[in-house]
Design a protein around this nucleic acid. Sequence first.
DNA 1: GCCGATTTGTCCGTATGTATC
DNA 2: CGATACATACGGACAAATCGG
Lengths: 243, 243
Amino acid sequence: MPNSKYTAIYESLRHRIETGEYRYEELLPSENMLVGEFGCARGTIRRALNELGLQGYVQSIHGKGVRVLYRPTAQAQFTVGNIESYEESALRNHRVPGTHVIRFERLTADEAVHSRTGFAVGTELVYIERVRMLNELPLIFDINFFRADIAAGLTQEIASHSIYRYLEQELGVAIGSTRRVITVERCTALDQQYIDLEDYNCMAVITSSTYTADGILFEYTQSRHRPDQFLFVSQAQRKKNRR
Amino acid sequence: MPNSKYTAIYESLRHRIETGEYRYEELLPSENMLVGEFGCARGTIRRALNELGLQGYVQSIHGKGVRVLYRPTAQAQFTVGNIESYEESALRNHRVPGTHVIRFERLTADEAVHSRTGFAVGTELVYIERVRMLNELPLIFDINFFRADIAAGLTQEIASHSIYRYLEQELGVAIGSTRRVITVERCTALDQQYIDLEDYNCMAVITSSTYTADGILFEYTQSRHRPDQFLFVSQAQRKKNRR
DNA sequence: GCCGATTTGTCCGTATGTATC
DNA sequence: CGATACATACGGACAAATCGG
């Protein structure tokens, strides 16, 4: 379970919001009330509230209180703002994940790979192409580059399940942060070959660069989605201090 | 200028990173060093560093230091994670913005509008359709719903420039947070009529719900982009505490 | 319009825990 | 093991915004 107090408070408040105990547009109990309830310092409450704000659950209003923004929705919850493996996303949306490995090989980064992925020239990499299925339907085409030294012992068999689970649970690799770029691109011959595209002529593409907790780039991935099965959520705050 | 110390420190460190004073994969000076330099408490430094992490500039490594993730890129900087008006984005990417208003009318939210936008039934709204141009090319089709009481005095003339500037600078509306959902949708007859689509048969769509600083929903917008002119960036952290 | 109570925002100093080297 | 660096938490102080009387 959460090993920090502020995370526990965050989870607790989030649960209350999701179950409707605190309702849409209502104000939460004041920070001082929460300090009393949870028996902690105000800074700890504020940290939990800040996290709720970043995830779009609440918004603080200076001098007034903290308002609930969250509304329950029928739509599958595809919360983003944190990092999830394909397997985790599929299961959370109650779909059955499946993977078919198309290519699996080792290569050394040359100038072309460097400028595309950011890996230094000469870096040893594992290159993988996979078709991802949801409830048996081929919907996503994935292209991965992993640093071979960090993803040591990676096999085609592992790639047909969850690489992230292998990295985190078997190798103990700690994952830090990801930068994602979302674009829409014309579909390629590979897309058409492996994905049931109907008459779409483009794909929704998530290009992500992932760093270990040590701040080292270890993965570059292109995830190409059939347009109608793609949804991405993002939460943002307006900067103040503009005049 | 920034009216808080941690924002000033954030700006200062960000500038150093962007200009290459702190380089990619380097470690920043330790928090205690920065405390000395900026003459503040450690918590203030940590708050600035936290912000840099959220924006993808750095990543903290427990027991070791804070590593720079940012790499200068030739690509136009399309940072997201904060809220920008169309005009602001265009100018930051050195393009000339232009707007053509197609429809401008008032309406009252009925059940259909409610389930689409989230505005309560009976809410008075302003409905706008606009074609957005970049360097004279029609590339984006925007559909807006604004709460009429908050966007008071909004005219077609204002809509042909920047509605946000009017709201913020003329009316003093404070904008809080936005929830954005990105999807790819088949193009509609309106898209085809107003946007030069070449042979694309879909559009990149950003659907956003924006709240005032008071936490009141006041805008619901669909921004439909021609696929090749669309790019969206998002930064995420891996949650810890999983076992 | 002013005042006072409440509430969030910023900042400080300190203490302790934990990971890295 | 010790020194260094980041992570969490506490408590206190004051500023700034909101709201009711």
